[in-house]
């Protein structure tokens, strides 16, 4: 004790204490800084978005400049394209993830696929747009909703591959061995035992993928393009919420800008709801 007291008064100790105090204050400030931005962005978004929110937004088409209107066609367009993208991307991602976790956990192919998949996971989405433009739009000669869906599917795949593999790896091997010991073939074991045990986690992955693509703008800009009107034809350009926000926000018209804010609010609420649901599901799967 006596040693400590004499140490406390030494200049070296004081300077170490001071250094610690400064850096710890910086850590508090940094956290405050980060949270301030979150509050500022969400605050402005809610303020601007809710002031334009009305039933009309969900029942009317996008207006020409200077007129009143809603966001019905981009909302539907986004929903349809997201749905198709998930329909294409999920099976592909789940199967690939199954291979990585169940069949080839340690083989060379898996190592390469895992590495490439991780790169695709954070590759610039605008490049995906260019890729789909080259293979679909340029070949077919026109922009289309299908091209938009495929571009989004390319973004879905790596997310689902990653979560499927992670969740299947968490399933204890004893479950698999038990299934094998009663004579279940491997494919049935995977479908009936491994998938069932990892189900919550895999659904989380799909939800996260939906959250990810519902805000994606760059890959849609030159695949699905945009459409001022309602369309049932996926072969034609289809409007989507993010692209409409992009176009309207950069326009000089006041009511277009207002609709852009409202659209931004809708997307953010959808994404936040999805990620909170995903977190809830993920938390449950960890507990069980």
């Amino acid at each position: 004790m006596a040693i400590m007291i004499s140490g406390a008064s030494s200049p070296l100790y004081a300077s170490r204490r001071r250094k610690n105090g400064i850096t710890m204050t910086l850590a508090y400030l940094a956290t405050g800084f980060g949270l301030t931005w979150l509050a500022l962005i969400l605050g402005v978004l809610f303020w601007e978005g809710f002031s334009g929110l009305s039933l009309r937004v969900f029942t009317e088409m996008t207006p020409p400049p200077g007129a009143a209107g809603g966001l019905l066609n981009p909302i539907i367009g986004s929903l349809v394209m997201t749905f198709i993208a998930v329909l294409i991307g999920t099976p592909l991602g789940v199967l690939a993830g199954t291979y990585l976790a169940e069949y080839g956990r340690h083989d060379k192919l898996s190592t390469v696929v895992r590495f490439i998949n991780d790169i695709l996971l954070s590759a610039p989405s605008i490049v995906v747009g260019l890729f789909v433009y080259e293979i679909m739009v340029a070949q077919m000669g026109h922009f289309s909703g299908w091209a938009g869906s495929v571009a989004l599917a390319v973004i879905v795949v790596p997310v689902v591959v990653r979560t499927t593999e992670d969740m299947l790896t968490l399933v204890p091997d004893t479950l698999r061995e038990a299934a094998a010991s009663i004579g279940l073939p491997r494919s049935l074991m995977i479908a009936k035992v491994a998938y069932r045990a990892a189900r919550a986690g895999m659904i989380t992955g799909v939800l996260l993928a939906i959250a990810r693509i519902s805000g994606e703008t760059a890959p849609l800009l030159f695949t699905a393009l945009n459409n001022q009107f309602w369309t049932n034809d996926m072969n034609a350009p289809v409007s989507s919420l993010p692209v409409v926000i992009f176009q309207f926000a950069l326009s000089p018209y006041k009511d277009w800008q207002e609709l852009a804010w409202t659209g931004a609010l809708i997307i953010t609420l959808a994404v936040l709801a999805l990620s909170i649901t995903a977190r809830f599901l993920g938390g449950q799967s960890k507990k069980s």
């Binding site: 979150l38 926000a249 950069l250």
Partner: peptide, 19 residues
Amino acid sequence: AIELLAGIPSIIYGIWGLF
């Protein structure tokens, strides 16, 4: 909260940045 910040689509940052 920090992870929510990561989940916000980039277009929201764009429109917020612009206006």
